[in-house]
Design a protein around this nucleic acid. Structure first.
Lengths: 213, 213
DNA sequence: GAGGCTAGGCTAACACTGTTAGCCGCTCAG
DNA sequence: CTGAGCGGCTAACAGTGTTAGCCTAGCCTC
């Protein structure tokens, strides 16, 4: 049975309106990105891919930063769709579900994933609310905002380490994912139980917080 | 009391030998990196900072990639020193200790941290064993390789999200760190207990693993 | 149908990037 | 005293994002 106060998913932000030609450009930019990496995706090469000179791209986009924002928005949108579907599909075991979906979409488009999470790009220009919506399933999975952020952090950290092949030689990323999933699932269950007990004794759960440094 | 089979820390890899002038260049490169960010650190600007033309830098370094590797090595070395010291200092509560040390050194040199973990740079050129040594304290903290990798992933993910200010507005990164620390510490204790029980009943712990997808 | 507007291409150019080739003076070892 | 080489220099090249200005084809209005 679903617990009391189970939060509802927010509506998916509507994608930005773009001209057909702009969408065409973004599509080929995406395939170039995945093929050549972020540095390999240059304006001149993108022009080549479209049979156009680089300068002409500026009739459709505000520049490279704008292009990257557009790419990131498609990536975040797809990630959000996948994660929301995952938690909706298995509400009784949501932690492995979100993590599995997160990992799958990251592995499916590594360069796009890297771009979205790059830190160097103009995140402020992103469609407002999009990134929050895409990350919401972590909250829907564990029902506690800071445990959700910690889970999100774990997912991102593991994903990027796997993509960059930074795990030790011969070690299986799968087992790191599973170890983290187990830890966070235990925390989720523990949190749910203390919330129940707290509700029963009319005491807010904050009062039971540990003191940890 | 320390548990049986507590692993010993590996020796710190000795830093690469470099000429005094090269060390000087790396030092000013580091301050420029922190001031201007990775993109802002150009060869010409680095030359300016030393009263030298950019081309002259090539008398001391093999190029920008080499410079970045050198910077990353100092960063990894400092990180390793801090983490090893942290676990050594508090062996009874190692998880918050490593996490705290990780976070502190990341916050102290954000651009250097970003560089080390950037994924675009020639990680293969790093001093062999350095990165593994720097990450070893995570293993020393939880005594299980895959839980250690998960913990490392969590640390990196949280750090980079905090540096990039990707947590939701108004939310306190501190609480995300604490939530994750609690989850992983619980997992560590649970793992230690099952290991004890397994040792008592002469059964390897792998047999008790969950099936999670 | 004629005239004007504009979308969407083009070339040329600018400032900047990392990097290499080749030159030259100073210092120091033999 | 002389040669070597360290460590600077200038000039140049290919590649980057980006802007200015030109031009043409098609459409809309009168």
């Amino acid at each position: 049975m679903v617990t009391v106060g189970s939060p509802r998913p927010s509506p998916r932000p509507t994608p930005r309106k773009r001209t057909p030609r702009a969408r065409e450009i973004i599509a080929t930019a995406r395939s170039l990105l995945e093929a050549l990496g972020r540095d390999g995706l240059t304006m001149r090469r993108l022009g080549d891919g479209l049979g156009i000179r680089a300068a002409s791209l500026y009739k459709h986009l505000d520049g490279r930063a704008d292009l990257e924002v557009a790419l990131a928005e498609t990536g975040l949108d797809e990630m959000g769709v996948a994660l929301h579907a995952a938690v909706a599909r298995s509400p009784e075991d949501p932690v492995p579900a979100v993590l599995g979906a997160y990992r799958a979409t990251g592995l499916a488009h590594p360069e796009l994933y890297r771009l979205v999470t790059a830190g160097s790009f103009p995140r402020a220009r992103l469609l407002p609310g999009l990134e929050a919506w895409a990350g919401e399933p972590f909250f829907l999975a564990v029902h506690e905002p800071y445990l959700a952020q910690a889970l999100w952090s774990f997912a991102h950290g593991t994903m990027i380490l796997e993509l960059d092949r930074r795990f030790l030689d011969g070690s299986d990323p799968d087992r790191a994912w599973r170890a983290g999933a187990a830890a966070f699932d235990a925390a989720r269950v523990a949190g749910r139980d203390t919330a129940h007990r707290a509700r029963a004794s009319r005491q807010p759960p904050e009062a039971r917080e540990t003191a940890g440094g």
